Amino acid sequence: MSSALVTVALPVALAVVMFGLGLSLTARDFAEVGRRPKVVLLALGLQLLVLPVLCFGLVLAFDLPPLLAVGMLLLAASPGGTTANLFSHLFRGDVALNISLTAINSVVAVVTLPVVTNLAIGFFDPVDAGALGLQFGKTLQVFSIVLVPVLLGMFVRNRAPGFADRMDEPVRIMSAVVLALVIVGTIVAEQDRVGEYLRQVGLPAVLFCLLGLGLGFAVPRLLGVARGQAIACAFEIGVHNSTLAITVALSVLGNVELAVPAAVYGVLMFPLAAAFGWVISRGAGAPADQAASARSR
């Protein structure tokens, strides 16, 4: 893949995506833990602890090659993004909760993503493992491409909320275009092995997505969380920021094969999330949901 694309275009593209996320956030969004601790901590626990373990199990079950295995764990450690918020809006989820979870996850991922990725590299020991680790300098790169644009977007929203509102839709569209271009670029770079990668990673990526969506919805519902909040949790846990995973793989770790699982997932996630949203949006009793909402606060 072109060095200019990896070193300049990808980080800039991700910065646009994360800046767009920041435009939708305020400091109040980070206070959601205090207002709704049960549902927020439950979602974070599923996202940060349960999902990587499930992904690890899938990787072992399918006996993926080391680099693809690490790529899957890198994807699992990536937070949700603006796409999760969009799906939540489309399928009557609690979008305010989604935004708060995305905000918190994006901050926490600065720590958890390097930890999970380094553990995966240490366990699967791919070729050139020493060059792949997220050492301190590379962790700072992750920080700079994740948090700095988000903070800048939040600053702009605080100073010019009208501008932030006007830019919301254009930035969302641009984010979708960026994701498409990143996926296409990754696939083109590995075009000789696309069929092989799809055979190896396709089913694990599908199961990973469905497990995240399913657990993100079912576990909160079983614990009495309101339906709208459970829908928000489902999309936050099941829809990952594959642009971030691909950018870290290519621009920070410098390995195209590591980006393949996120690229495959990025293609499959949209129809899977849409189908899942259609299924869970059927029914729902308003009175029961209101009672559950009161209990989950």
Rank of each mutant, 00 (worst) to 15 (best):
M1Y: 05
S3T: 15
V6H: 04
V12K: 12
V12Q: 04
A13T: 10
F19G: 10
T26N: 03
A27W: 13
F30H: 11
E32L: 12
G34T: 10
R35M: 04
R36H: 03
P37H: 01
P37V: 05
V39H: 01
V40W: 00
Q47D: 08
V50S: 15
F56W: 13
A61I: 12
P65D: 02
L67P: 07
A69H: 06
V70W: 12
V70D: 02
L74W: 10
A76E: 07
S78P: 13
S78T: 05
T82L: 08
A84N: 11
L86A: 06
F87P: 08
F91S: 04
R92W: 06
R92D: 00
G93K: 15
D94K: 07
I99S: 14
I99W: 02
T102G: 14
I104D: 01
N105A: 10
S106I: 13
V115M: 04
V116Y: 09
N118V: 03
N118C: 05
L119V: 09
L119Q: 13
A120Y: 05
A120D: 06
F123A: 02
D125I: 13
A129I: 10
A131K: 06
A131V: 08
G133N: 15
Q141W: 11
V142R: 14
S144Y: 15
I145G: 01
V146G: 00
L147P: 01
P149I: 13
V150E: 02
V156C: 03
R157Y: 13
R159L: 11
P161C: 14
P161K: 12
P161T: 13
G162T: 02
A164P: 09
D165H: 15
R166Q: 11
M167F: 12
E169G: 11
R172V: 00
I173T: 09
A176N: 14
A176L: 09
L181I: 09
V182A: 04
I183W: 03
I187G: 08
V188N: 00
A189S: 06
V194F: 06
G195P: 06
G195M: 06
E196I: 10
R199W: 12
R199D: 07
V201Q: 14
L203Y: 01
A205G: 08
L210D: 01
L210Q: 01
L210Y: 00
G214K: 06
L215W: 06
A218W: 11
A218V: 14
P220K: 14
L222R: 03
L222M: 15
R227G: 00
Q229C: 02
C233L: 01
C233W: 02
F235D: 05
E236I: 03
E236G: 08
I237Q: 12
G238K: 01
V239W: 00
T243D: 03
L244Y: 06
L244Q: 08
T247Y: 12
A249I: 04
S251T: 02
L253G: 06
N255E: 02
V256N: 00
P261E: 13
A263N: 04
V264D: 09
G266Y: 00
V267A: 10
M269Y: 02
A274N: 03
A274M: 08
A275V: 14
A275W: 09
W278S: 00
V279A: 15
V279K: 07
I280R: 03
A288S: 03
D289I: 09
A292T: 11
S296D: 05
R297P: 10
